[in-house]
Simulated assay, not measured.
Amino acid sequence: MSLLEVKDLSVSYGAIKAVTDVNFYVNEGEIVSLIGANGAGKSTTLLTISGLIKAQSGQISFAGNDLFKQMPSQIVANGISQVPEGRHVFPGLSVLENLQMGAFLRHDREEIHADYEKIFEHFPVLKERRNQDAATLSGGEQQMLAMGRAMMARPKLLLLDEPSMGLAPLFIKEIFRIIQQIQKEGTTVLLIEQNARTALAIADRGYVLETGKITMTGTGTELLNDPQVKKAYLGG
């Protein structure tokens, strides 16, 4: 059984249909990339999985549980964390306090402290700046903090929305290396990314979303080599 299964999902903003009859699944242990142009419905799909947007129709199940019956806090508690587009770190709070916010549903204090150290192993710059206001970090450092904050909830499934947006090439390379490391350590990843080439290169499988509908699917390699995908998203 798939860890995450999305069936016939439709989401509208008033009269505007953002997502129409979308179907896809994510197996445990995979990196799955969802690619498409701006406005294709990618972020809407993730926000609906997280319970932050209400679906018009369809079904989303996670580990066999119906997510439509759960509040966003329950969805986090059951194992889904999202790193939002634009990072959205908490200004006025330190790096360490932002990480604490990621663990707000947990009560295992000793293990929380152990997880801080694990995050600092992934992102050494965050340890150096742990007492610094998160708003004063660079864009790449804020992205690392947003990912670390999400991982503090110990998710089974990590939702990543445009993690490379606005970052310098060196930071992008590091972010994608860490995504692969997170997967190797046992976290399943659903990745939305405008940098389609890099996203598909690390993906086990991928889906192409166009104007709210899934139009193609395949392994990451298959989509990288598909002439239509190359023309539309890879600049070739």
Rank of each mutant, 00 (worst) to 15 (best):
T20Y: 11
M147A: 02
D21Y: 06
N38V: 14
P91T: 11
E128Q: 09
N65Y: 11
F104A: 09
N65P: 04
Q70Y: 14
S138N: 02
Q59C: 09
G58T: 08
G41N: 06
S61N: 13
Y25P: 02
A135H: 07
M71G: 10
V83N: 00
H122I: 10
Q56F: 01
K118Q: 14
G79T: 09
Q100P: 03
Q142M: 12
H122S: 07
G29R: 00
Q74S: 14
A40V: 02
Q100D: 13
Y116H: 11
M151F: 10
L93P: 10
K156T: 14
T45Q: 04
I119M: 07
E110M: 03
D108Y: 02
K118T: 15
E117N: 10
F62K: 08
A150T: 12
K54E: 14
K69S: 14
D66G: 04
L145R: 01
G140M: 08
I119D: 00
T45S: 12
R149F: 05
H88T: 06
Q142I: 11
E28R: 07
L52W: 02
P91M: 12
A114H: 04
D21W: 04
N23E: 05
L145Q: 00
A150R: 08
R130D: 03
G36K: 03
H122L: 15
S138P: 00
E111P: 06
N98K: 09
A134S: 15
K42S: 07
E30Y: 00
G36R: 02
L158P: 04
A37S: 15
G140R: 07
R130W: 05
S138V: 03
L99R: 00
E111K: 15
N23D: 12
G36L: 01
D66L: 09
V76M: 02
E128S: 04
S73P: 01
A77C: 04
D66F: 01
I53E: 11
A146S: 15
T44F: 03
N65V: 15
M71Q: 15
P124Q: 10
A114R: 11
N38Q: 12
I49M: 06
V95I: 13
T20A: 07
E30T: 02
S138A: 05
P84A: 00
S57I: 03
Q143H: 11
Y116Q: 09
V76E: 01
K156V: 14
A135F: 08
G29A: 00
Q70C: 14
E28F: 01
D133P: 06
I53K: 15
D133M: 08
N78G: 13
F90P: 09
F62N: 05
G79V: 12
S43F: 05
F68Y: 13
H113W: 06
E28A: 04
F90W: 05
T44Q: 00
S81C: 09
F68T: 13
E111M: 14
R130P: 00
L52Y: 08
E128C: 01
L52I: 13
A40C: 01
K127Y: 13
N38Y: 14
F62E: 03
